[in-house]
């Protein structure tokens, strides 16, 4: 049984009085107003929207490079221009001397063992101080191919190229001293290649082989020691 405190239950059979209709309209209006006033959600409250790729062939630097760029892609605000690996020296020299890219931020590689166009991507990440613009060059390289060193253009490339050589096995031609840098001379393999096992390889390096037998196992006690 509804008590007097309860709201009257709406009954569609009864004729709606004028006062009730006004009230309903008022509530509806208030609801509509409230819906309008809900502030737009802050960006951190919404589901993130992943950035998308777009074509960047109309970028100034890509246009300036004319026919040297194979394709250009814009993603998260950075242009990635794919260039011919054989022309990398010309492209880099042009970008430094004509376009003001005096600063090589980073040089690295990516390994795509299954890819048909070529196994390695070499990435050059350049910076221009005048307007703080950056451009990324990508050169595709086959497994047996070599690439010209850009050490003569940016001194910073020296160690970065050594690192790429060490970890990926890419050979840079005309590099002043292409030696291993993070692993040691004589190390077998290139660790950042995808076919190199994560758990590592047996390098043959043994510390005190008499005490710690190769391949693990119990420690051999020295003579006169132990039980």
């Amino acid at each position: 049984m509804p008590t007097s405190d309860d709201k009257p239950t709406p009954n569609t059979d009864e004729p709606v009085t004028g006062a009730e209709a006004d009230k309903a309209a008022e509530i509806a209006a208030a609801k509509a107003k409230a819906a309008e006033e809900v502030p737009p959600k802050n960006p951190w409250e919404e589901k993130p929207v992943a950035p998308t790729h777009s074509d960047a062939m109309d970028d100034d630097d890509v246009v300036a490079l004319e026919g040297l760029v194979v394709s250009a892609d814009l993603f998260t605000g950075a242009v990635t221009a794919t260039v011919d690996a054989e022309k990398i020296l010309d492209v880099c020299r042009f970008l430094k001397e004509e376009r003001g890219y005096a600063f090589l931020v980073d040089l690295t590689a990516i390994d795509w063992p299954e890819r048909e166009e070529g196994r390695f991507d070499l990435i050059y990440w350049l910076h221009r101080h005048e307007d703080s613009k950056r451009v990324r060059l990508r050169a595709i390289l086959g497994e047996d191919q070599t690439i010209e060193s850009v050490e003569s253009i940016w001194g910073a490339a020296n160690w970065m190229e050594r690192e790429v050589y060490d970890l990926f096995g890419v050979i840079f031609e005309n590099h002043p001293g292409l030696e291993r840098i993070l692993t040691w001379e004589g190390f077998n393999g290139h660790p950042l290649r995808k076919d190199f096992p994560v758990e590592g390889i047996d390098t043959g390096a043994a510390i005190y082989p008499d005490v710690y037998p190769p391949g693990g196992g119990p420690i051999v006690p020295e003579e006169g020691e132990g039980a």
């Binding site: 950035p51 998260t76 950056r134």
Partner: peptide, 12 residues
């Protein structure tokens, strides 16, 4: 999202 799934691309 709880499990982060990336779009394809390079980012610095």
């Amino acid at each position: 999202p709880k499990v982060l799934r990336s779009p394809e691309g390079m980012v610095y």
